[in-house]
């Protein structure tokens, strides 16, 4: 996760606490897992503002069924359905879930 985005998440996390939900849109499971770790346990590369900062934020991939259910179907069809065919939605959601279950303080119920 680039340094500017880490700073944005850090600012939001500090302002709203663990009620703030991070939704990821990364295209590969490995990257999604690292991003999820960054916004929960802290930046594993120790390069950005979240190095050593555990925000423990609830984190989901956009393809997680819980998030998909929250979306307007028409907007989903227009903006996201094409990428759903291109990427591996289940693998992406699972990669983020692994980090969420380990490090997130809150989850969406």
């Amino acid at each position: 996760m680039d340094l500017q985005n880490q700073q944005r998440v850090k600012d939001a996390g500090e302002k709203y606490g663990t009620d703030c939900v991070v939704i990821l849109g990364s295209s590969d499971p490995e990257g999604a897992e690292i991003y999820a770790e960054t916004v929960t346990a802290g930046d594993p590369t120790y390069a950005g503002p979240l190095a050593g900062v555990s925000l423990e934020l609830p984190v989901y991939h956009i393809f997680d069924p819980i998030i998909r259910a929250e979306c307007d179907p028409a907007a989903w069809e227009e903006q996201i359905s094409m990428m759903e065919m291109v990427l591996e939605p289940d693998a992406l959601a699972e990669a983020v879930k692994g980090m969420r279950e380990q490090y997130s303080k809150n989850v969406i119920e």
Partner: peptide, 26 residues
């Protein structure tokens, strides 16, 4: 470097759009 196969990702998107626009079957 973690940037994937860029031309392949692009043609996959074009193919998926072709499915959505019913130009080809899935």
């Amino acid at each position: 470097a973690g940037a994937g196969n860029v031309p392949l990702a692009n043609i996959k998107m074009i193919a998926a759009l072709a499915v959505m626009k019913k130009a080809i079957e899935k």
